[in-house]
Amino acid sequence: MAVTQAANKRAGSPSAPGRIQLERRSAPALDETEAVFDVENAEVFYGHFRAVRDVNLKIYKNQITAFIGPSGCGKTTMLRTFNRMHDVIPGARVAGKIHFHDVDLYGPEVSATEVRRRIGMVFQKPNPFPKSIYDNISFGPRVNGVSNKAELDTIVEKSLRSAALWDEVKDRLRNSALGLSGGQQQRLCIARTIAVEPEVVLMDEPCSALDPIATARIEELMRELKSRFTIVIVTHNMQQAARVSDRTAFFTAELDSKNDQRTGILVEYDVTAKMFSNPSDERTENYITGRFG
């Protein structure tokens, strides 16, 4: 594992030796685009409980990065460090280095609202506001200072079109968003997220509450959105990770014998094609082939 992480740490440098060269051969097109996030030795605590430790990885621009792993391994916890969603949980604390481009996300002068304006999030359960469809989409732009009616109209239409929802809802924009189906609600939440033109979209198991058809639509949508946004997705569904992602990070939980706590660790992070065909770590292979988790 130490080898894997050390390799990941060097993944950004052009002269990285060892496994990275192998990676280059297997998927040259994916390699070394600009890194959006650079994570070094990240740890997350809830009070005294250490939920995740020693995470080292880089998230690359205009790629879909999937976090997979068994329940309780810290995937979602790790995802929420990227837009400082832990700030609203009392007692939650993040340690280590998490850089967004070259800015320390947890620097003393960084505003969480400024961070979230650039790094949006789609949640596990569709969570539209109990407002109209129009007001759901225009909420973000309004919060960020857009008040011109015509401009808002344009943003609403554009966002709904990007989320492949426009044709279904264009005649009832003033109706409550709660009247939509689960799949439509989740696409509405995606439209709401991209309405503020973030650079990154974080998705926390966005399809776990949806049926296979709605899931397929969201996956298709993700592939379309990839050209405009960097996407990080947490998923329990390995097929989904294999289908949509460019890179995959496998997390697992490790029992600490000293205090009997289970802490999440990053086992392996690589190009998806390699992760699912020829993983370097035995634990990854066991998980992917269904022998564990």
């Binding site: 969603m85 609203v88 609202t113 909420f139 973000g140 919060v143």
Partner: peptide, 13 residues
């Protein structure tokens, strides 16, 4: 809570 989180995630104070 998920309504509050949705709002925070859009950059609302």
């Amino acid at each position: 809570t998920n309504l509050r989180e949705a709002s925070y995630a859009l950059g609302a104070s």
